[in-house]
Nucleic acid binder design. Structure first.
Lengths: 333, 333
DNA sequence: TGTGTTAATGTGTTCGAACACATTAAATAA
DNA sequence: TTATTTAATGTGTTCGAACACATTAACACA
């Protein structure tokens, strides 16, 4: 159309230079006229590179919270392997920082194009970030945010805001001047953010003021956990509502069952089987869905579509904070 | 690898026949051994067909509910035009059945590969379905379901269940033995499903029984609508909670503002600007998000990925029924 | 006048699949 | 025996972009 060969057009498109002013202008004019958009399929076929995504996440066998994340990775992986995207998973023990570091080394050693990780250990994650930077491997974070020196891609929820959502729900169903407990079971750093958001919401409210206390439980063993809960309730008999900051609300409710019955409001996180059971029973009032599966799936697909078709990556993607009751639970699982 | 030419491999892959038993087995063996998966990119490049998707939906200028659907279509369209997927929109007047039929004819006339439509008129939609069938154009429905003779692809929400979700929320925040009104504003057939679900939930409950009445308002003009609401409240002074079955909850709340203040529970649908404003104010307690944008976006992308990469289409995709409060609204818009 | 240099431009091949067409070899008919 | 049919198999081209390599033309310098 411009009266030049495809070679010259190619040089204009890729700014490879060695094009006379006249040719450049002729080609440029036509490109604009026809609003040329390269065919991403043909481009990809020619480039024909395989991309490697290494995913570093907790072992789902250690904590069932991670099962859906694992599934999300697999789903995206299956979808994109035909296009030449290789996904490899590296599991670490969420109770063991050194296993996190070990696995991260494995993942980095093989020089992937990108490392996708759930950075549940703050300090160790920074170490990994640094190593990736040295090795020129880009990093994407999901599940929870950590403070990073440079802008890091993050895909997940605003955890502080999810604390506010929990508070707003509690506010709607609780009466006035009640005692509320924030319960951390096996506390991880990001759970503090949820507490902060929860408290912030009630600080802003001027009417119906409540008293809010927070309590950590760290016993791994079930019986001792139940015992701890019993002691806590004995010394705080007037608490009428509980906000559990991770997926372990079912443990609290189980502990309640060992104790004499009383109506209690419980809000927790995540659609684990036992949580859903208690939601249906009415023992849990609301769950907040952190969408681990979608987070994982989206992270991988964004990367794949970026590599394959040049789609640009969002700097930060905050997923919606879904509110779950007994009636809408089934559509999220 | 099998010691035959690519032509023979091609015949085996596509079952074009004219292959000796021996060659077939040799090729088949290798295909299984290497777990051959065709490269969808190369396939698509060769086929190099443009696909036409015609979308039949209400004019967003007539009802703001449809603005996000429109955006969702555009977003998917932009994403897939470089791949040779052409999306064309046909707007009809949601208050005018004949404009629906007119536009449907336009859409069918140009022989698209598929017609995607929001079938808000039940009978007329059946006419369109029949015509498409005659013209061998496949159809995908979104937004609301209609009863169809054969299995029809549908992408949207379970509307009856969304009524149940509304009921479960109301149940959590309302006291006992209250009067509840179900409000239909400019009733469309599918709104009855929401009423049914809402009532069903409370029928199943044995404690805290309420009285539920339903009421239609059809006035298009604001003043007369406000007047009608006033009259209704006068003759039903004890109603303490309202369930509005479409996106027009803000109209009801506006009408309330003309009347002396009283605390009222309101649950409605959809994240229109005025609805969100009232949600932040506390005048609306919960909104249910029908995700028109996501419905539209997903419909188009499913079709595009089906055409381009042979991904299979779901027979029915029920989207999650999202519950919105003042605290999580911003992540859905 | 001939040779080397360089900027500008053109040509050919490749990616993996799809499909039209060509070729081969065996079987059948004239 | 030779021609014809047909089943089986092989070869070549195309899609659009990327890139290596080849060619041309203009100019400088001996």
């Amino acid at each position: 159309m411009a009266g030049v060969s495809k070679g010259t057009v190619d040089r204009v498109l890729h700014k490879r230079g060695k094009v006379s002013k006249e040719s450049f202008e002729k080609v440029d004019k036509v490109l604009k006229e026809i609003d040329y958009k390269p065919n991403p399929i043909a481009r990809n076929l020619k480039i024909n590179k395989t991309y490697n995504i290494h995913v570093l996440l907790p072992d789902p066998r250690q904590d069932p919270y991670w099962v859906p994340a694992h599934e999300g990775i697999n789903e995206a992986s299956n979808q994109f392997t035909p296009f030449g995207v290789q996904v490899r998973k590296f599991f670490y023990d969420p109770n063991n920082k050194s296993s996190f570091l070990n696995q991260s080394e494995q993942a980095i050693l093989l020089q992937p194009d990108v490392l996708l990780m759930a950075p549940i250990f703050e300090n160790e994650s920074h170490t990994v970030l640094r190593k990736c930077c040295e090795n020129k491997i880009s990093v994407v974070l999901f599940n929870n945010h950590i403070n990073t020196f440079k802008e890091q891609i993050f895909i997940g929820q605003d955890l502080k805001q999810s604390g506010r959502v929990a508070a707003s729900l509690m506010d709607k169903i609780i009466g006035e001047n009640k005692e509320i407990a924030i319960i951390h079971i096996n506390k991880e750093p990001h759970m503090q953010l949820k507490e902060n958001g929860f408290k912030e919401f009630f600080m802003e409210k001027t009417n119906g003021i409540h008293s809010i206390i927070s309590k950590d439980f760290n016993s791994v063993e079930k019986n001792s956990f139940n015992q701890d809960v019993g002691l806590f309730l004995e010394s705080n008999p007037n608490i009428s509502a509980f906000f559990v900051t991770n997926s372990k609300a079912y443990m609290l409710v189980e502990a309640f069952e060992k104790i004499t019955y009383r109506e209690r409001i419980v809000i927790g996180y995540d659609l684990l089987k036992p949580n859903i059971k208690y939601l249906q029973d009415g023992a849990i009032n609301f769950l907040i869905h952190q969408k681990p599966k979608r987070q994982a799936y989206l992270s991988v697909s964004y990367l794949a579509e970026h590599f394959l078709f040049g789609k640009d990556l969002p700097a930060q993607e905050f997923l919606p904070i879904d509110i779950i009751t007994s009636e809408n639970a089934k559509y999220y699982t």
